[in-house]
Design a protein around this nucleic acid. Structure first.
Lengths: 405, 405
DNA sequence: GTTACTTTGTGCCGCACCTAAACAAAGTAG
DNA sequence: CTACTTTGTTTAGGTGCGGCACAAAGTAAC
C-alpha cells in the first residue's frame, strides 16, 4: 500500500536539497523507479521516497503502484515513476525563415500540443512575436494546463545579458532587436505566468538533444548544424549550455576550412559559413537556388533524390571534407566526447558517415580525440523542445521554490 | 577578547559545507576579514565565525585580533584573516626544455621555498622526475612543513584520465610516457604524503593566473602562451580548468592563421603552431636560431634589444597579426571575458598592444566580444604555482575531509 | 568624557534536510 | 510453504545553518 494522499501531505516540507536533482533524473528518463532514483542520487531509500512523494504532491510526477520493470527479476518490484501528463507545461516558440510555431512542452521533452505553423514572418519582431505568443496562449486556453514559463528560439546569436538578436539576417529583422524583451512583454501581456527566455536555435537544439535525444549522457557535447545560411554551433558542458561570457560562444562559422576558398563577408576566405551551408552545396553541385522553398529543403532534396548524379556526388564529398575540417578544428579546441549534427550536416553524415569520420580523425591532433562519435540528431523539433527546456530550468533547479509561491 | 583556543575547540565539528568556499576565498585573497567572508559566502556572521575558527583549528589560516583594514572607518574593526605561514604546503614541480625545478607553495600561491634549477633533462622521465621529487623532498625536510600533495607541470598535452604525456617532444621523452604514474610513484617512494597530480604547463599557468594573477575574477579566462616550440592554450571556466573530455582541449596550435603560410607537420599549412612561436619569429626576422640558449630566450632578446631593426619590426608585426587572427578565432568559439598571454606572446603584446587588440577586434564577429581585455601574465613561475594549485584542490574542496584523516 | 551610533563577533535555540536502523511488503526460487 | 531478495516506510537522531539577542569595539558628536 502506497498511502498516496496522507503520506505525501506529511512529507510536503521535506526534501528540498535533493528535489531538483531528482526531478532532473525523472525528466531525462534516468530514474524509472524509486530504487534507481535512490542509487542515482546517492541517498537513502527513505530520502528518495520522500522526494518522490513531494514531487508527486507538486503535480509533476506520478508514482504508479503497477508493474515497474525493475532491475533483476528477484525482490520486490519497484513502483514506476512517470511524468504526470496532467502536469504543467512550458510554452515553447520558434521563429525561423520559413515561419513560426508555438507548442506546449511538458516534462521529459514531450510535446503536448502544437499550433499550426504560419509562414508569414514580417520585418517587425513585435508583430511576429505577438502572433506566436497568442498562438501559444490559445493552446494554453484550450488545454487548460498550467504554464511554468516560456522560451523562444531564434536563428541568430543572442547577446547576454541583454537578449538582443545580433544577426537575425534571414528574418529581415533589424540587427540588435531586443527579442527577449519583446517576447517577455508579449508573454506578460497575454496573461501567461512565469519567466520568459530567449536563445539561439542551435544552442537550444543542443540542449534538447542532450537531455532527450542523441546527446544523452555526454559530458562535453558539441552540436553543429546548418539550416538556411551559415553554420551554427553549440556546446553543452556538464548538462549546461555554454554560451560564453556574452552569449557569443560557438560562433563556429568563421573557422577556415578551405585556404583557397571563396571570400567570406567576415573579410577572410574559405570560412565554414560559406563553404558548408546549403547554398554552398547547391553551388558546388552547379545548381542555381530557386526562391520557392528554403535553401535547406532544396539542398536536402538534391542530396536525397539525385545522389547518383556525379556533380551531386562531388559536391557531397567536398562539403563533407570542409565540414570535417571544421569539426576537427573544434575537436582540437573543445575536445568533446560526442558530436551531433543537424540540418544539412545531418544529411551529409547520413550520406557518407565513414568519410566524415575519417576526415575528422585524420585532422584531429590525437587519434583519441579524433575518434569522437559523430551522430545525427534524433529529436523532432529540437529547437522547440530546447526552448521549453530553458523555461523549465528554474523548476528543475528548485521545484519547490519555483512552483510554491 | 576573541577566545581563540576554547571557542575554536567547541566549534570544531561545525561548518562542513561552507568550509571549502570559505578557504577558497581566503586563498584567493577575496576575504581579508570575517565581515567580508560573511558577505561573500552569503551566510550569517555566526556561521562565518565558526568556519573561520575551524579553518584556524586546522592550521590553515590565522585570525589576527590586530587592526584589520575593514570597510568603513565606522563600527567595530574587523579581525584580519590571513594565511598561516606555518601551515602546510604543496610540493610543486616543473619540467621544461631548459631544466627542472621544485618548490613548496603555501596557500595564497606563496612560494615558500625553491630548489635551484637543474638543467640536465635526460631522455628518461623516471630519472628526471626522481631527481625533481628528491629536490622537493629535501625542501620539505629542511623546512619541516606538512605537505598536502604534489603537482607536476610538463610541456606536453596530458591525456586524461591516464596521465600520459602525448607530445613531450622537446624533452626527448617518449610520446605517451606515463608521467603521472611515474611522478606519483616517485612521490610515494620519497615518503611524501598526499595525492600527486600532473598537468600541462600552460593549463596550470592559466589556473594560477586565474587565482592569484591577472586572471582574478574572470569567469571565462583564455590563456595563450608560447615557450619553446608550438603554441599552448588553456581555458578556466568558473574557476575550474577546462581540459575537455580527454584532457586534450585547447590544442590551439592548429588554427589556420595564414592561408598562404608554411606547411605544418599536421598536414595543413599556416597553423598557429608554426606561424607564431619563437622559431617563427626568428625566421621571420631573418635570423638563424643558435643552439646556446632556448628559442624563447633568443626571440625575447631579439625583440627587446633590436626592436629598432626594420626586419625585427616587420617580424614583430607579422607575428602580432598571426597571433591576433588565432585569438580572434578562439574568441569566436569561446567568447572569453579576458585573455592572458604568456611567453613570447606576452612580449609581443607589450611591444604593440594596440595592434594586437585591433586585429582581434577586427576579426572577431561582434565588436563586443572583440573588445575583450588582453593582458600579460603577471605571476612569476605561474606553471609552478598552478601545479601546487591542483595539489591544493582537494583541501580547497573539502578541508576537513582532506586534512582530518 | 560621556553618549549615541555603527559595525563586528558570539551564544543559544530551532528548523530543514538527511542518515541509520528496524520493520513491513511484495515479489522470486526452490 | 519457506527462504531469500529487493523495495518502501516508519521512527529516531544528528549535522549544518539561520535567526535573534546581546556583547564588544571602534568612531562621531557634544
Amino acid at each position: 500500500m502506497n498511502g498516496k494522499g496522507t503520506t505525501a501531505r506529511t512529507r510536503l516540507e521535506r526534501g528540498r536539497g535533493a528535489l531538483g536533482p531528482a526531478l532532473e533524473l525523472v525528466h531525462t528518463g534516468r530514474a524509472p523507479t524509486r530504487a534507481v532514483l535512490t542509487a542515482e542520487l546517492g541517498v537513502t531509500r527513505a530520502t528518495a521516497g520522500a522526494v518522490a512523494a513531494e514531487l508527486e504532491a507538486l503535480g509533476l510526477i506520478r508514482v504508479d503502484s503497477r508493474p515497474g520493470a525493475g532491475a533483476g527479476s528477484q525482490g520486490r518490484p519497484s513502483h514506476r515513476l512517470s511524468i504526470d501528463d496532467k502536469g504543467p507545461v512550458a510554452l515553447a516558440a520558434q521563429v525561423h525563415a520559413d515561419g513560426f510555431r508555438a507548442a506546449l512542452v511538458g516534462l521529459g521533452g514531450r510535446i503536448v500540443a502544437t499550433a499550426p505553423v504560419r509562414s508569414t514572418v514580417t520585418a517587425d519582431p513585435a508583430q511576429v512575436l505577438g502572433e506566436v505568443v497568442e498562438a501559444g496562449a490559445g493552446l494554453l486556453r484550450t488545454t487548460g494546463l498550467r504554464c511554468v514559463g516560456a522560451g523562444l528560439a531564434v536563428p541568430s546569436a543572442v547577446a547576454e545579458p541583454e537578449g538582443t538578436a545580433l544577426n537575425p539576417l534571414h528574418l529581415a529583422w533589424p540587427a540588435g532587436a531586443p527579442v527577449r524583451e519583446i517576447f517577455a512583454e508579449r508573454v506578460r501581456a497575454a496573461g501567461i505566468e512565469g519567466p520568459a527566455f530567449t536563445g539561439n536555435d542551435v544552442n537550444l537544439a543542443a540542449l534538447a538533444e542532450h537531455r532527450h535525444g542523441a546527446g544523452r549522457g555526454a559530458q562535453h557535447l558539441l552540436c553543429v548544424a546548418t539550416g538556411h545560411r551559415g553554420v551554427g554551433g553549440a556546446l553543452v558542458l556538464d548538462g549546461r549550455l555554454h554560451t560564453g561570457s556574452a552569449g557569443l560562444a560557438l560562433e563556429v562559422g568563421h573557422l577556415t576550412v578551405n585556404p583557397e576558398g571563396r571570400p567570406c563577408y567576415c573579410g577572410s576566405k574559405g570560412c565554414l559559413d560559406v563553404e558548408a551551408d546549403p547554398l554552398a552545396f547547391l553551388t558546388a553541385a552547379g545548381r542555381a537556388p530557386g526562391p520557392e522553398v528554403s535553401l535547406l529543403q532544396q539542398a536536402r532534396d538534391l542530396l536525397r533524390t539525385e545522389h547518383a548524379d556525379p556533380a551531386v556526388r562531388r559536391a557531397t564529398e567536398e562539403l563533407i571534407d570542409r565540414l570535417g575540417l571544421g569539426l576537427a578544428g573544434l575537436v582540437n579546441i573543445l575536445n568533446p566526447d560526442r558530436i551531433i549534427l543537424g540540418g544539412l550536416h545531418r544529411e551529409l553524415l547520413d550520406a557518407d558517415p565513414e568519410r566524415l569520420r575519417a576526415v575528422v580523425a585524420d585532422r584531429s591532433l590525437w587519434g583519441r580525440s579524433g575518434g569522437v562519435p559523430i551522430l545525427p540528431c534524433t529529436l523532432d523539433h529540437n529547437s522547440l523542445v530546447g526552448a521549453a527546456e530553458v523555461a523549465w530550468q528554474p523548476v528543475l533547479d528548485d521545484p519547490l521554490g519555483a512552483l510554491a509561491p
